[in-house]
């Protein structure tokens, strides 16, 4: 039996695709935002001189990195009712137009904890790969640890690991698809929905693939814009600035 392509289903069911895309977008934007800042915090803790801080940072990274993301999502969703414990999540959820709060926030929190570990490791690698002389020079002109980090070390480290951090954000966008397993109606979920309604899974998958590609390209482009305009300028080998 031949497979007859019917692309019109995408138009008939375009609302599902739009809804799915918006859901993925919400998960991605909020997820990226929080994993970035939490990741920086944990990464700085890891490299700090304080034994307790660096040990705690190590715990955080190893714990949330080695447990599969889907397990983390299930654990939060099925063991707890988030909106009972944290009522503000319901208000927040309503504000961003999300209906099934428990599902959404369970997925979101798991995404954030998981991705932040990779951001933390990238930050740590960046700081540790910087020549020690930079921190030493900053100290010799009288800067304390915080000033040295803020003015000298961290800007350079961040610039260096901006590429790997971008990769992690793209991974987050892909990983958001796991939210469908606990019932979040994001893009991958919608592929299944359209397929179950129309048996036109191939067309749905194509559309969804294009949408994911669009999202990842847009994110990569935004990150490169931030790199160009907001991060420090460094020399490349031929003396030009990048």
């Amino acid at each position: 039996m031949a497979y007859e392509f019917d692309w019109t289903v995408l138009i008939t069911y375009k609302q599902l695709l739009i809804d799915g895309f918006m859901m993925t977008l919400k998960l991605s934007i909020i997820g990226i935002f929080f994993s970035f800042f939490i990741g920086i915090f944990v990464g700085l803790a890891r490299v700090s001189n304080n034994f307790f801080l660096s040990l705690s940072g190590t715990y955080y990274v190893e714990f949330f990195r080695n447990i599969p993301l889907i397990v983390q999502m299930f654990f939060i969703y099925f063991s707890f009712t988030l909106t009972d414990a944290f009522p503000f999540l319901e208000t927040f959820g309503n504000a961003i137009g999300v209906e099934h709060h428990n599902e959404f926030f369970s997925a979101l929190i798991a995404l954030i904890t998981y991705t932040s570990t990779y951001v933390a490791e990238a930050i740590r690698a960046g700081i540790q790969s910087l020549p020690k002389g930079q921190m030493e020079a900053a100290k010799t002109i009288g800067m304390n640890y915080v000033q040295a980090m803020y003015h000298v070390v961290f800007p350079q480290a961040l610039k260096m690991v901006w590429g790997p951090i971008t990769s992690q954000f793209l991974n987050l966008i892909k990983n958001s698809s796991l939210a469908m397993t606990i019932g979040v109606a994001e893009l991958t979920f919608q592929t299944q929905e359209i397929d179950s309604l129309t048996f036109r899974g191939f067309e749905a998958a194509t559309a969804v693939t294009i949408l994911y590609l669009f999202l990842t390209l847009a994110t990569a482009y935004t990150m490169s814009l931030i790199n160009r305009y907001a991060l420090i300028k460094t020399q490349n080998n031929s003396g030009g600035t990048v």
């Binding site: 002389g133 930079q134 030493e136 020079a137 900053a138 009288g142 800067m143 304390n144 420090i232 460094t234």
Partner: peptide, 19 residues
Amino acid sequence: NKLRQQTGMVFQHFNLFPH
């Protein structure tokens, strides 16, 4: 940190801030 303001150091590898 205050004491270090009184002692300057010049390094073998300069350690200027490239950014």
